[in-house]
C-alpha cells in the first residue's frame, strides 16, 4: 500500500497546496471532484424532472392552454437567449481548455465572456418578465384574461394596429380586412400582449371582431376536478370566452414562471461560481497541474445551458 511513495516526488502535499490532506494524489482529488459534480448534476436533473413531469401532465390534460398561451411568449427574445447561452457554454469550454494549457490570459478572457453571457441572458429574461407582468400574463390568481378589453393597463394600445374604439363602440364593428393585419382581428388586450415577433399567418385568426380568436374552435378540454360552473346569465358570454381563450391559461404561466424562474436562479448561482473561479484565476491559482474548479464549474454551467435548451422549445415553440 505504498501508494505513490517515491515514484512521483512532485505529489508531496507540501508542494501542492491545493491537494487536500485526505487525498493521496492530485489525480484522486481531481477525479473525486469531477465525479461528485456529475452525481450532483443527476440531482439537478431530477429537481427539474419534477417540473418537466408537471409540464407533461398539464400539457396532456390541457393541450389547448399550451397552444394558446405559448403565443404570448416572444420567440425572438427566447431564441436570442438560447444562442447567448450556447455561446457562453462554448466560451466556458474554451476556458477549461485554456486552464488545462496554462493560458492564463485566455482563461480570464473566456471566463469574463461567459459571465457576460449569463448577465445578458438574465437581462433579456428581465425584459420578457416585465412584458408579461405588465400584460397580466401571470400565474394562478394573478392572471388577467387576455380576452377582456380591460386587461390592458400598462401596454400601448394602438401600437400593434388595434383599435380600442371599435371594441366598445355601440355600432357593430366593421369586419376588418383579412389581408391587412391579422392582429387587427384580435381583442385589443390579446393583440397588445402578443409580442411583435409572433408571426400570425394569414387566415390564422378565426371568427371576427368580438369573436376573433387565434385558435380554431375546439372542444373544451378536461378541467380537472373543478366544479362545473353555473350556466351564465347571458349565453353569449360563455361562448365568447371559450372562443377567445381556453380556460386555465394561467396554468401555463404558472409552469412557465416556476421553470424559467428556477432556471434563472441556477444561472445566478452559476454566475456566482464563475465569478469565484474568475477571481481565483486572476490570482493565478490554475494551471496544467490544477484546474479542477474550472472544470467542475464548467460542468455545472453546461447543465444550466442544457436545461434551457429543453425549456426553450417546450415553452416557446408550441404549434
Amino acid at each position: 500500500m505504498n501508494h505513490g511513495a517515491g515514484a512521483a516526488p512532485e505529489l508531496h502535499h507540501e508542494e501542492r497546496p491545493e491537494l487536500q490532506p485526505h487525498f493521496e494524489t492530485p489525480e484522486q482529488q481531481f477525479e473525486s471532484g469531477k465525479f461528485g459534480m456529475w452525481v450532483f448534476l443527476a440531482t439537478e436533473i431530477l429537481l427539474f424532472g419534477g417540473l418537466f413531469c408537471a409540464y407533461a401532465v398539464y400539457r396532456a390534460l390541457h393541450p389547448e392552454v399550451f397552444v394558446y398561451a405559448s403565443l404570448f411568449l416572444d420567440r425572438v427574445l427566447g431564441g436570442i437567449n438560447t444562442l447567448v447561452l450556447i455561446c457562453s457554454s462554448l466560451t466556458m469550454a474554451l476556458g477549461v481548455r485554456a486552464a488545462q494549457l496554462g493560458q492564463r490570459r485566455l482563461l480570464i478572457a473566456m471566463l469574463s465572456v461567459t459571465l457576460l453571457g449569463g448577465a445578458g441572458f438574465l437581462g433579456i429574461k428581465y425584459v420578457e418578465y416585465e412584458h408579461k407582468w405588465k400584460a397580466g400574463l401571470l400565474w394562478g390568481t394573478q392572471y388577467r384574461s387576455q380576452a377582456d378589453g380591460h386587461a390592458l393597463e400598462h401596454g400601448e394600445p394602438g401600437t400593434h394596429g388595434t383599435d380600442a374604439a371599435s371594441h366598445d363602440g355601440s355600432a357593430p364593428p366593421e369586419p376588418p380586412a383579412p389581408a391587412a393585419d391579422p392582429r387587427a382581428a384580435l381583442p385589443p388586450a390579446a393583440a397588445a400582449a402578443l409580442p411583435p415577433s409572433v408571426p400570425i399567418p394569414e387566415g390564422r385568426t378565426f371568427g371576427d371582431g368580438e369573436n376573433a380568436s387565434l385558435l380554431p374552435p375546439a372542444a373544451i378540454g378536461p378541467t380537472g376536478m373543478r366544479a362545473p360552473e353555473p350556466p351564465p346569465a347571458a349565453g353569449e358570454q360563455l361562448e365568447r370566452r371559450i372562443r377567445h381563450e381556453p380556460r386555465n391559461v394561467h396554468l401555463f404561466f404558472g409552469i412557465y414562471f416556476v421553470m424559467t424562474g428556477l432556471h434563472a436562479l441556477h444561472v445566478i448561482v452559476g454566475m456566482a461560481l464563475i465569478g469565484y473561479v474568475l477571481f481565483r484565476s486572476l490570482r493565478g491559482d490554475f494551471g496544467p497541474r490544477y484546474f479542477t474548479p474550472v472544470d467542475i464549474v464548467g460542468l455545472y454551467w453546461h447543465l444550466v445551458d442544457l436545461i434551457w435548451i429543453f425549456l426553450f422549445p417546450l415553452l416557446y415553440l408550441i404549434e
Binding site: Y58, G140, Q142, R226, L251, G254
Partner: peptide, 17 residues
C-alpha cells in the same frame, strides 16, 4: 404564497399530482 394554482382544483390544478 403566490397562488400559483398547480395543485389547486379551483384553478384547474390537480391535487392528486
Amino acid at each position: 404564497t403566490m397562488g400559483i394554482g398547480i395543485f389547486d382544483p379551483n384553478l384547474g390544478g390537480d391535487p392528486v399530482l
